[in-house]
Structures are given as C-alpha cells and as structure tokens.
C-alpha cells in the first residue's frame, strides 16, 4: 500500500512537470479560466448528456486538465430551454459552457422560445450519438424487417413506441417510421431515456429508439434485442457485448429498407461573444479529454460515433443540422404555432 501511494505520487509529479513543461511556452499569452467553469446540462440527471458531462467532469479533475474546478449544473426546465436561455443571457462570460443534444434545435422550434444556436459560440463536436430500434427479447420479431412488416400488416395505433420527451428526436424518428409503414405508432413520451428502456423491459410498450448507452445494460442482460441502427453505415465497434453479438453486428435500418438516418449531436457551446483565445482553450481541453482512456472506454460502451469537429467546420455542420431539423419538424407538424 505504502509503495503504491508513493509511486502514484511520483507518477503524478512526473506527469505534472511534463505537463507544465509542455504548457509553459504556449501559456504565455493564452487565455485560461480564472474561476470555476460552470458546465450546463440542458437535461435531467441520469440521461445521456448528463452522463457524458459528469464523465468529462471526472476526467478533467482526474487528469488535472484545468487549474480551476469544473462544476456540472443541470438546467432541464422546458425541455432544456431553461439552460439555453441561461447561456444566451450570459453573453461574454467565458466561464460557462453547455453540452447540447438535439433539443438545441427541437426545443426552440417546438415551443417558440426566443433562442437560436447562433446566440451561442460553437466550440466543438464531441461525438455523435446513434439511435437503435429496440424490442423486448421476448418479442417474436427477430429482425427490423419482421417487426416493421408486422406493423404494416397491423392497424393504426396497434404498436406502442416509448421515447424521451415530446416533439423531440425520438418522436421525429417515430414519425419517420409512421411514414415508412403507413401505420401510426402510439408514441408514449417519458421523462428520461432510462425510464424508456425499463418500460420496454417490463413489456409495457412494443419498441423504443433508445440511444445505445441507455439500453446497453439491458441488452447485455438478455432483456432487450436491437433490431437496427438508424445510420447509413454500421457501428464500427467489434468487441462482443453479448455472447454472440457486437455493436457492429446490428444491421442498419437502411438494410431493412427504412431510409432513415439520424444522428444526435453531442457538442459544446459557449455564450455569445467569446474571443478566439477562449474558444481555443476549450477546443484544446476537449482534444485532451478525447485522448484519455476513460473517454475512449465511454465511447466504446455507448457505441458513439467519434466524429470530432471544431471551428468553421463545426459551425457549418450545426447550420446544416438545423435546416434538416426544420424540415423534419415541419413535416411532422411539430412547429410552434
């Protein structure tokens, strides 16, 4: 125990000195936080965005990536609108960052609250989250084709789909499936992704479009079955999750003929009016976070698409995603009156 402590101390000393050495020339002019950084999560505790931000908080403090502490704050009111308005009102404050999910687009469109992502400064895309069509393991439907054929053959409102929130990503995908099958799903909204998964395990609904991280534990325990992933290519992770399957064994929904691909942004924004120096600090910070083993492990467990973008490339991507969402929400009739 004693030697162990000493060696840990020694290692961290070495790490610290090396880190200092590397930082020294760069930090002469660069901006750095001078007080605790507030990390806003526009969603409740326990959800995908919350898990990711708490992991980042842990990674940052474990590897000592910023000198100031990072504090996670949940502002989930009004489908995240509360958090976005809060960052919008903090214009020019470089000690606040926000992690986003699709509600960056869907919340203002569906509720009409006065907010647009252009009120914020884009920092970086951390990853993209996949969506998977899940059924209960006891369901007779083994493939997406099977299941969707059954829906097609059934009547309107025969099959129940559970999802997170109303007029958000889960319901957008459900509406796309409605269109494909020509039959209407009953969409039952719940507060969080974890609840949704458990409702499916309990057999109260027929299917869900949970993100991988929300349902993986139940899949491993043999309670849920993934049918297809809403992407144009398969998830690359080859490591076995269950006895027989890995993430990459899940076919895409395209293979079943459903032309739906939908990925959700997990990205970082700052309040409007941030300087280039400040943005650069956070971009570098998240680059370092991405290099840590904890982050890599988390990405693999949650089967995330590890795209990383920053700067103009990122802003362009967000702009394009906004246009896509406008179209999707309009088609589904979800726009605020």
């Amino acid at each position: 125990m004693q030697t162990n402590h000493v060696s840990t101390l020694f290692r961290s000393l070495v790490a610290a000195t090396t880190a200092l050495g590397m930082l020294a020339p760069a930090s002469v002019l660069a901006w750095e936080p001078t007080k605790p950084v507030e990390f806003v999560v526009p969603a409740g505790t326990g959800g995908g965005a919350d898990q990711m931000s708490r992991l980042i908080q842990g990674v940052v403090s474990k590897h000592n990536l910023i000198k100031q502490p990072m504090v996670v704050v949940n502002k989930s009111g009004g489908a995240g609108g509360e958090g976005f308005l809060y960052i919008k009102d903090s214009k020019g404050d470089p000690h606040k960052i926000i992690i986003t999910l699709s509600n960056l687009f869907t919340t203002p469109l569906a509720t009409g609250i006065p907010f647009n992502w252009k009120d914020l400064t884009p920092v970086a895309m951390l990853a993209l989250d996949e969506f998977v069509l899940w059924v209960n393991a006891d369901s007779p439907h083994k493939t997406a084709k099977d299941y969707l054929a059954a829906v097609k053959a059934g009547t309107d409102n025969q099959f129940k789909m559970a999802g997170t929130g109303s007029k958000q990503e889960d319901q957008i995908i459900t509406v796309a499936l409605d269109k494909f099958t020509g039959k209407k799903f009953i969409y039952v909204p719940f507060k969080g992704g974890g609840d949704v998964a458990v409702q499916l395990v309990g057999g109260h609904v027929d299917s869900t479009v949970n993100n991988p991280i929300e349902a993986v534990a139940h899949w491993r325990a043999g309670k849920l079955r993934p049918l297809c992933v809403f992407d144009d290519k398969r998830i690359p992770y080859k490591e076995k999750i269950t006895e027989t399957m890995s993430w990459s064994d899940i076919p895409t929904c395209m293979e079943a003929g459903v032309k739906v691909d939908y990925l959700m942004l997990r990205g970082i924004f700052m309040p409007g009016g941030a300087s280039q120096d400040q943005v650069k600090f956070y971009v570098d910070l998240f680059k370092k976070v991405r290099e840590t083993p904890e982050w890599k492990d988390f990405m693999e467990k949650g089967a995330f698409n590890q795209s990383f973008m920053a700067g103009k490339e990122y802003a362009d991507w967000v702009q394009k995603a906004e246009d896509t969402h406008k179209g999707l929400m309009k088609d589904a009739g979800f726009l605020a009156q």
């Binding site: 326990g46 708490r54 325990a221």
Partner: peptide
C-alpha cells in the same frame, strides 16, 4: 449513478 459510470461500472441486471 454518475459515480458508477466514472469507475467504468455499468449499472444493470449484470
């Protein structure tokens, strides 16, 4: 729950 995740423990039936 957040704590569990940081230590790489996945809560769930297993």
């Amino acid at each position: 729950l957040g704590g569990l995740l940081i230590w790489g423990l996945q809560p769930g039936p297993l």
